[in-house]
Simulated scan of single mutants.
Amino acid sequence: MENEEMSGNIIDVNEENYEREVTQSEIPVLVDFWAPWCGPCMALMPAFEALAPQYEGRLKFVKINADQNQALMEKFGVRGIPQLFVVTGEEKQAVKGRTRTRLSAELDELVE
């Protein structure tokens, strides 16, 4: 099996492993729709990567490449990136925070 982890606790999710990694996850999942050409996505990445270890065991962090996963983009109704969601089973909630502090505050409310 190929290594799906991008960096530390962050998993690269696509249409093939979405069900297993997101829908069937036993803990809530923070989904980040991004693309390598997207400036704001790259600006968000350090905060996303810094927070992942802090939520280990309480929140799974995954990234979905928007260019390669159009069906997932449609499923979530994503019109622009970066776009974050916390997913618990079939329920999803948009996350608005884009800085480490705001993101952390918002995640604390959603996962506690």
Rank of each mutant, 00 (worst) to 15 (best):
A52L: 10
M1R: 15
M6A: 14
A71E: 10
E109Y: 10
D12H: 14
A71Y: 12
G8H: 11
A35N: 01
R79E: 15
Y55E: 10
K75G: 07
S104E: 02
L30A: 09
V78K: 07
A66V: 03
I81Y: 11
V29R: 01
N17S: 05
A50M: 08
A35I: 05
N14Q: 10
D12K: 14
Q70A: 13
E56D: 12
V78I: 05
N14K: 02
A47I: 04
M73Y: 13
C38E: 09
K96E: 13
F61E: 07
E90K: 01
D108V: 00
P82Y: 00
L30V: 08
K92F: 02
V86C: 07
N3I: 01
A43H: 12
E16L: 12
K92S: 10
T99R: 12
T101H: 14
I27T: 09
A43I: 09
K92Y: 07
L107A: 07
T101Y: 15
A94F: 10
L84Y: 00
A94Y: 10
P36N: 11
A43K: 11
E21Q: 06
A52C: 12
N3G: 14
M6R: 14
E109R: 11
M1A: 15
E109A: 08
G77E: 09
E15I: 08
P46Q: 08
A52H: 06
Q70Y: 11
E4V: 14
E2T: 13
V95R: 06
A47E: 00
P82M: 03
V86I: 00
S25D: 07
N9C: 06
N17V: 06
R102W: 15
D12Q: 14
C41P: 01
F48L: 12
E109G: 05
V29I: 05
D32W: 04
R102C: 13
V86W: 02
S25E: 00
W37T: 07
N9R: 06
D12W: 13
Q70S: 13
I27Q: 14
G89S: 12
L103G: 00
K96S: 13
M1F: 14
Q83G: 04
M45V: 13
T23W: 09
D108L: 02
E5N: 15
F33S: 07
A52N: 09
M73I: 11
E21P: 03
F48P: 10
G39L: 13
V13Q: 02
R98I: 09
Y18P: 05
I11M: 07
V95G: 05
R98V: 06
E56Q: 03
E16G: 04
I64K: 01
K60H: 01
F61T: 09
G97V: 04
L44K: 06
G89F: 08
E2A: 14
M6P: 12
N3F: 11
L51G: 05
F85W: 07
S25A: 04
M1L: 15
N9L: 12
G97C: 01
N3H: 13
I27K: 12
V13Y: 00
E106V: 00
G39P: 14
V22E: 05
V87Q: 08
P82H: 06
